[in-house]
Design a protein around this nucleic acid. Structure first.
Length: 381
DNA sequence: CCTTATGATTTCCG
DNA sequence: CGGAAATCATAAGG
């Protein structure tokens, strides 16, 4: 508005008097030859002063006598994005009070003045030139994008499970139920982050396009009263996009941070071990000592044990790995435990099978000799 | 605190 | 890839 007034005022001074062959020369000349240019100018100035009271919309709602030159972003500029336009087109033409801008707009000198204005601006704008036309594809944002993609936050949804969780599960052994307990929480949290991220992103995108639309419409409307080149609009849009993408980058940044925190917490949580509960170690020890000769549970057995102990298969594997090596390292230390579990299994066996038959001293099933560690590392040591 | 127990991870091997 | 062995890091117990 301010600018408009200024330009118009300047225009009157420059073009209106000193430039005879602009716009519609005939009407101008006629007008001037009629001997009242001063009064015209005075009127215009007066009207300009009154403009401030009137909203742009109000003024634009009234008909223009003529379209803006095609090289300016007028109503039908081909440079316009296509989808964005048209929202405010076809405004109702209100043929009401002929004061203020309307009068100004309909003034017979307007095309000429406008044309001059356009010319002047074209010259100056060209000399201004875009300051930083091409901003490089910000490495920072690319890094964030890559990371989000890698974490499965952005990118396509994988039925229920994120890419990261799937990758983790695959790395841990690929078994379907593997890590389900450990990772379900992680996955849930990641999904939450993902959801927030997407909704925010969508919000930003929507806001961005809305804002862009708004600005473009505004500019298009203003292009009726002041010269606005498609380039300017482009530049404006670019600026808006830059602003919004910086907001998006913040979103991405914070999302990345959240993922990192979550990740570290969970990975550390994996390292921050919790002892298995009593019952679980019991089950595992039972299996171990009752299979001392070959303490290598098959995959099925591992799954069975995992289910029984409410742990994962890889945890079972870990446990057996640790157990084997530690048992082997010094059997002596485990002798007591071995006895205990041998007795326990023996008791169980006795209770189940030989219950009805004679109760043969349950305490020492094998005549005092436990399934003498057939798994004999000592032989090799 | 220090020591031991123990689950997890890493490294190496076949 | 599964397992052995070494190692890490924490929990638990004194």
């Amino acid at each position: 508005m301010d600018e408009q007034t200024r330009m118009m005022t300047g225009l009157v001074g420059i073009g209106g008097l000193s430039q005879p062959d602009v716009g519609d020369p005939d009407s101008v000349r006629k007008q001037q030859s009629l001997g009242q240019p001063q009064q015209d100018i005075g009127d215009i100035l007066q009207q300009i002063m009154a403009i401030t009271d009137e909203s742009l919309d109000e003024a634009q709602a009234r008909c223009w006598p003529e379209e803006a030159p095609a090289r300016w972003a007028g109503t039908d500029d081909p440079a316009e994005g296509g989808g964005a336009g048209g929202a405010r087109r076809g405004l109702p033409c209100r043929p009401t009070s002929n004061t203020g801008k309307h009068a100004l707009n309909c003034h017979r000198m307007k095309p000429a003045l406008f044309s001059v204005l356009c010319e002047i601006k074209e010259k100056t704008v060209l000399s201004i030139r875009g300051v930083q036309e091409e901003d490089p594809p910000d490495p920072q944002i690319m890094r964030l994008d890559n990371m989000l993609l890698a974490e499965g936050v952005s990118g396509p949804e994988k039925g229920g499970g994120s890419a990261a969780a799937a990758a983790a599960a695959a790395a841990a052994g690929g078994s379907p139920n593997d890590g389900s307990i450990e990772h379900s929480d992680y996955r849930a949290k990641l999904a939450q982050i993902r959801q927030i991220y997407h909704s925010e992103l969508e919000k930003y995108e929507q806001a961005c396009s809305e804002f862009t639309n708004h600005v473009m419409n505004l500019l298009r409307e203003q292009s009726r009263t002041r010269p606005i080149s498609p380039k300017e609009i482009e530049r404006m849009v670019a600026i808006i996009h830059r602003k919004f993408s910086s907001i998006q980058m913040q979103l991405k940044q914070s999302t990345c941070e959240a993922v990192m925190i979550l990740r570290s917490r969970f990975l550390d949580a994996r390292r921050k071990r919790r002892n298995f509960n009593k019952q679980a170690t019991e089950v595992l020890n039972e299996y171990f000592y009752s299979h001392l000769s070959n303490p290598y549970p098959s995959e099925e057995a591992k799954e069975e044990l995992a289910k029984k102990c409410a742990i994962t298969v890889s945890q079972v594997s870990n446990w057996f790995g640790n157990k084997r090596i530690r048992y082997k390292k010094n059997i002596g230390k485990f002798q007591e435990e071995a006895n205990l579990y041998a007795v326990k299994t023996a008791v169980d066996a006795a209770n189940v099978s030989a219950q009805a038959s004679q109760a043969n001293s349950p305490a020492t099933p094998n005549s005092g000799g436990y399934p003498a560690p057939c798994y004999t590392p000592d032989g090799r040591l």
